[in-house]
Structures are given as C-alpha cells and as structure tokens.
Design a protein around this nucleic acid. Structure first.
Lengths: 230, 230
DNA sequence: GCAAAAGTGTTTCCTGTACACCCATGC
DNA sequence: GCATGGGTGTACAGGAAACACTTTTGC
C-alpha cells in the first residue's frame, strides 16, 4: 500500500484582517499558473518533505505577499479526491490572523499578485477555497467564544469599540455597548493604557486598552474554561 | 516542487466508548510489523489514492476490529517531520464514537490483535499516538459543551445518570444530579421513553430517555448556539 | 452650538447553584 | 426492612439584558 500511495499535500492559510471600517478581509493571491489560472486562491503551496506544516504556511505567505502573520493555527484538512484536477492533493488549511497595523503587503518581483478582499465580496476563487474561507469564519465563530483570538486581529492598543465591532461582525448581530464593556471589564482582560485614540475622525477620543494575557491565563487555569462571549 | 514531494498520509482514529462502570475506553490495535512492532497503536493506515479520508478510516477500523463506528469526525492533522521513523508521514486524526451496545470487537483471521483500553491506563503506544489520544479528550471537552456528541456515546435509550456520568468523566468534576436534570429537561433535548431500565443492579429502575435531535436542530437554528453544559 | 462617538449606572429577570427528602426496587 | 440508586422542588445569588443621559472632541 504505502509504495503505491501518491498523494500530495499543500499547506494553505485563510489570513484574516479586521477593521471596523472595512470589516473582515481575507488575503488572496492571483494564480499565475493552471489549474484555475487567473482565479484568486488562498496563499499556500506544497509542503517540503522535511518541513513542519506551520513553517510551510509561514514560508508561502511570506513568499507570496511579504506578510508575517502574528497568529497561526491549523483548522482542518480538506481531502476530497476530486478537489484538485491535478490529482489527489490534500489541503491542510490554517487560520492566520494579522493586526491592521502590520497588514501591508509587499509584493515581490515575481509574477504573483495579491490583495485583500472583503469576506462578503469574494471574487471567483480557485479549487474549493470558497468553502475553506467559509469554514474559517465558522471556526472563528466557535473559537471567539472562549479563546482570545480577537486580540490577534486588533492592534496592541485598541479602543473597546473596535473589539465590540469585531464580535458584531463575526456573530452578525448588534451588541449593547454598555453590557459588552461591563463584561470585558468584569473579566479583567483589558488593561487601560495611558494614551487615548489620536485623531478620531469625529467624536470623543476613545480610551485605549491592551489585552491582559496573563489575567486570561490565570482565569483559564483556575476555571478550565472562560466564556468571553455568549 | 510537487514532483519532488514525497509525503505519505495515514487516516487514523481515536475510537471511544463510554460506560459509567468502566469509564472512557479507547480502541487500540497491536502492531504486528515494525516500526514499533508489538506496541499498541490507533486503528488506521494509509489512505488509498482515490479514497476520501473518512472512508479510509471506516475501512481501517472495520478491517482491524470489525467495528462500525456510528459517529466520525476529523480532529486535526499531525505532521511533525520526525513523528514516524519511516519518513514523512502525516496523520489525519479522527474521532470515532461508538455506543456501548455496538462495541463488540470481531477480530478477523489476520494477525491483528485489538482491544479496548481505559483512557486512564494506557499501555505503551506507538508513534505520537498518546498525544493524539490526549488531543481527542481535549477535543471532546470542547465539543461536548455545545454539540450533542455525548449521545453518540450512549445507547439509543439511556438513563439520565449515564449522560451525567459521561459529563462528569469528561470534565473531571462532580455534577449536581438535580441541576443537571433540570438543565437537560429545560432544553428539551430528552424524550421520555416507555421503558424503564431493566434489571438495575440495585435501587429503583431508571427512566429511559432518547435524544431529541430534531429539537436540538430547532434550537440551534433559532439561537445559533446552544450551551449544553457549562 | 452642533454633530458624532465614548463613557457610564440601575433595574429587572433569568439562570446557575446549593441543598434534603421521598420513591421504587432487590434481597 | 434495609440498602441502593432514582426522582423531584425551593430559595438565593449572580450574571445577562434592557435601557438614556452626559461627556469630549472637531468643526
């Protein structure tokens, strides 16, 4: 059996970026070779023989877009025999998160083209990548309830409203500002920063906070589970 | 790159069975060939070129143990380059659940030996399979909070106490019987059955229930999320 | 002073939790 | 009748949800 097996493996990533202004954006790169030439696909590619899966994802993202994601986790493996016309190719899909301030793309001299697309307005995508993106959003919906992944999508210092709008986007519903703040403060996950938001477009400048990761770890250790959002 | 890639893929399963008497048991099969000959490993093996991953798992479990799992889902892919001495081999790990009444092993004429082991008293295991089993329990801990996987581990008709003890095992803490029943009944997930438990070892015979899957789907559709257990 | 967004407190209701007694059966 | 596990109700506390007005800034 093993000698006859011929299955190839790619490591791909749904890299997300969020801002209240633009909503959730996903990083796509334009394919320059068949199959699905000129369609948009997830950054990723074939894993090297001696390379850990996560390393492969980091490498491919860097090579295709110059980006360095600050958070990466595996989601699931897509393995339908017919998902790739070139033969049997598994896709080990990952979720990558970047902060708005570090999401500038640096496109190399190569012929790759890459850009951010709104998750709500995707172009024609290659392979089953639209399914993978949908799976990533669903994955986020599950994880954001109890894991501090939201903070990986925000700058190190952020106003509470930005956190709130991220949750509103992910769960597609309105959240009461007062109750949300109360919950976050009662959990103790937010540390007040000296600064306030500079140059708000309009209105009163917002207090900035940072994520108190140590407090989160303490709570998790003590209770085993933390409901951040219900 | 693709032409030089040489990575093989196995589909393996952590198959679990639960009873209040024996606790959580995992299905292991004794390896009859190197590497790790005579150690105990998860049922699984190399995926066929044109075979979906889940089919491969079902096939391997059936071939090695005669068992038909009634629930199967993918967990995650283990891909450390050094995890298998034979070369680069990915393990797409799955979670399989069987009901106590359908967990009898049928060992074929082959030289495979298989048996149930208590998750709390594992023998020496092959590869990184101990990690995979630990990951499966952690996976259960996450999923049982909001998904009705517990019912896949119980017979079609079960006493509430069995459901409760399953949760007690998974979360490793005591649960108040009255509050647990109240919660389950208020959710409406349990349908009363005509029968009561026959021949209880001692004490009053328990009322049997079945899982009301339709009600669960309704709730999930309406609220998007159901907290079964906190 | 007006428009825009940020900050804040109280009441109500519901849900989680703690807790103890009676019931049905086998022996 | 006794041992064993099953079934049930109440009271309290804490968290979730609903809800409106004041504050700070830019223009």
């Amino acid at each position: 059996m093993p000698v006859h097996q011929h299955i190839r493996v790619t490591a791909d990533a749904v890299v997300l970026r969020f801002s209240s202004k633009e909503g959730m954006m996903v990083l796509l790169s334009k394919r320059s070779i068949p199959p699905h030439i000129f369609k948009w696909g997830l950054p990723g590619g074939f894993v090297h023989n001696d390379e850990p899966l996560e390393d492969a994802v980091h490498r491919e993202i860097r090579d295709e877009t110059g980006l360095k994601v600050n958070y990466l986790e595996q989601m699931r493996t897509w393995g339908h025999p017919e998902r790739d016309p070139r033969g049997r190719i598994l896709c080990v899909a990952h979720l990558g998160l970047v902060k708005p301030s570090t999401s500038k793309l640096i496109l190399g001299a190569g012929n790759k083209e890459a850009r951010w697309y709104s998750v709500k307005e995707l172009p024609a995508t290659a392979f089953d990548h639209a399914d993978v993106i949908a799976g990533a959003i669903e994955h986020l919906r599950t994880r954001l309830r109890s894991e501090p992944l939201a903070f990986e999508l925000l700058d190190p210092k952020f106003p509470v409203s930005e956190l709130e709008k991220l949750y509103e986007w992910v769960y597609n519903r309105q959240i009461d500002r007062r109750n949300f703040q109360k919950k976050m403060h009662s959990l103790g996950l937010l540390s007040v920063q000296q600064e306030k938001l500079k140059h708000p477009l309009q209105g009163r400048p917002a207090q900035l906070y940072s994520f108190n990761r140590q407090k989160f770890q303490e709570l998790k250790q003590k209770n085993g589970y933390i409901e951040i959002f219900s």
